[in-house]
C-alpha cells in the first residue's frame, strides 16, 4: 500500500457566514496525478491554499507530506512545489538566475544546484537561451521552465493551479509529458484545469460544486457512473446546478 501524501478529513474554511470549502475529505496517494476540478467559485483555490500551508482551516483535519495543516505549515511549504499560470518566474532574471534563486530558497546546495541547472536546461533544450531574461521567452517555454523549477527540490507533491491556461496545444501536450516524467520520479501531482481533455490524463479527479466534493473517482469510472462519453459531459452534469460564481 502506498502512503497518502495528502489526507483531509472534513476540511473546512469559513469566511464569516460564507463556507468557501465545506467539509472535504479525500486522500491522494504518492505518485498519483490528481485532478482537482470545479466550477469558478467552487472553493478550489481556498482548498489549495490550505493544503499549501498558506491559510489555516476553520475546522476539520488535514496533512500534506505527513505534516499538519494547522501546526506545521512551514514544514509543508518546504515539502511542496507550487506553480500557477499567474505567478511563474521573475521576468527580469535570466533562466539560470531563476533556477539558482528558487533552488537557493528551497535549500539546495551549490553542488546540487549546479547539477540540477545543467539537467533542467538540457531537458528543455535551453542551452542557447540560458542567459536570456525570462520575460523575453515565449509563454509556453516559461510555463515548462516554471514547472521544472517548481519540482527542482524534488518535493513530495507539486500543486499546479491552471498551469496550461492560454498555452498553445502543442506546448500543452509537452507540458503533460513533463508531468508524467515527474510522476515517474515519484512526485505526486495535484492539478487544476479548465481543459476537460486534461482531466482524462489524471489518475483520479474530484469535482467540487459549491464548496463540496460532489464526485471523486477515476475518469473512466466517473464517465460510467454519469453515463457520459467525455469528462466534459460529466463536469457539465455535476456543475450546471452550481449556485455560486467566482
Amino acid at each position: 500500500m502506498r502512503e497518502a501524501v495528502i489526507k483531509t478529513d472534513k476540511l473546512t474554511k469559513r469566511f464569516g457566514e460564507f463556507i468557501a470549502t465545506n467539509a472535504i475529505s479525500f486522500e491522494v496517494q504518492q505518485g498519483e496525478i490528481f485532478g482537482f476540478l470545479g466550477a469558478n467559485g467552487a472553493g478550489k483555490t481556498t482548498a489549495m491554499r490550505m493544503l499549501c500551508g498558506l491559510l489555516i482551516p476553520s475546522s476539520g483535519a488535514g496533512t500534506v507530506a505527513g505534516f499538519d495543516v494547522y501546526k506545521q505549515t512551514e514544514k509543508i511549504k518546504k515539502s511542496i512545489g507550487y506553480m500557477s499560470q499567474k505567478f511563474s518566474l521573475y521576468e527580469d532574471l535570466t533562466v539560470l538566475e531563476n533556477i539558482r534563486f528558487f533552488g537557493g530558497i528551497y535549500g539546495l546546495s551549490n553542488q546540487q544546484l549546479k547539477a540540477k541547472s545543467i539537467e533542467l536546461i538540457h531537458r528543455l533544450n535551453l542551452q542557447k537561451d540560458k542567459d536570456r531574461l525570462v520575460g523575453t521567452l515565449p509563454l509556453g517555454w516559461k510555463q515548462k521552465l516554471s514547472f521544472l523549477v517548481a519540482v527542482l527540490h524534488s518535493p513530495k507533491v507539486v500543486f499546479l493551479d491552471e498551469p496550461t491556461g492560454g498555452v498553445d496545444p502543442v506546448t500543452r501536450r509537452q507540458f503533460w509529458e513533463l508531468i508524467y516524467e515527474s510522476v515517474e520520479n515519484s512526485i505526486t501531482v495535484f492539478v487544476t484545469t479548465h481543459y476537460m481533455d486534461e482531466a482524462e490524463y489524471c489518475n483520479r479527479v474530484s469535482i467540487m460544486v459549491d464548496g463540496k466534493i460532489e464526485a471523486l473517482d477515476t475518469p473512466g469510472n466517473l464517465k460510467e457512473k454519469y453515463g457520459a462519453t467525455s469528462m466534459d459531459e460529466v463536469f457539465y452534469q455535476l456543475a450546471r446546478g452550481a449556485k455560486r460564481g467566482e
Partner: peptide, 10 residues
C-alpha cells in the same frame, strides 16, 4: 471565456 469553467463557457 478565458479562465471560465466549462459550464459558464457553454
Amino acid at each position: 471565456t478565458t479562465g471560465v469553467d466549462p459550464v459558464s463557457r457553454r
